[in-house]
């Protein structure tokens, strides 16, 4: 009940939430493709490649945390853990695999 009252006093605007998650997913997609280029050029294979992607997204998450939300993610996201740190990690993976394969094929194999 108390939480419901909090929500009524400071409501969550749906379009703002959508816009914020859109911004995060745009950043993720772009950086995922660039990580793919980097991983392919470095010639990473199998596990190191995926590990590279995870580490890269973690760095990007902390950059979003530091610069886009000014260190206060609760003001921008309803659930900072899911939406900022974990949001769209796997949707970026397909773009990563695409560019990774392309550049690996062009540079190495």
């Amino acid at each position: 009940m108390n939480e419901e009252r909090e929500l009524a006093i400071s409501p969550i605007v749906h379009s703002s939430v959508q816009h914020n998650s859109q911004v995060v997913s745009n950043i993720r997609n772009l950086t995922a493709s660039l990580f793919g280029v980097a991983a392919g050029t470095l010639g990473l294979e199998s596990y190191p490649g995926f590990l590279f992607y995870l580490v890269g997204t973690l760095i990007v998450s902390s950059l979003i945390f530091a610069f886009r939300t000014d260190g206060k993610p609760t003001e921008y996201f309803h659930q900072p853990l899911g939406d900022l740190w974990g949001g769209d990690v796997f949707s970026g993976l397909s773009g990563f695999v695409l560019t990774w394969t392309l550049f690996y094929g062009l540079v190495r194999a």
Binding site: Q22, N26, N29, L30, S33, S91, S94, G95, V97, L98
Partner: peptide, 20 residues
């Protein structure tokens, strides 16, 4: 298989070309 990769991986490209 390159066709399959592009099928799944081109969504960000469409996002940037055509809007979200």
């Amino acid at each position: 298989s390159w066709y399959f990769l592009t099928l799944f991986g081109l969504q960000p490209v469409y996002n940037f070309i055509l809007g979200s």
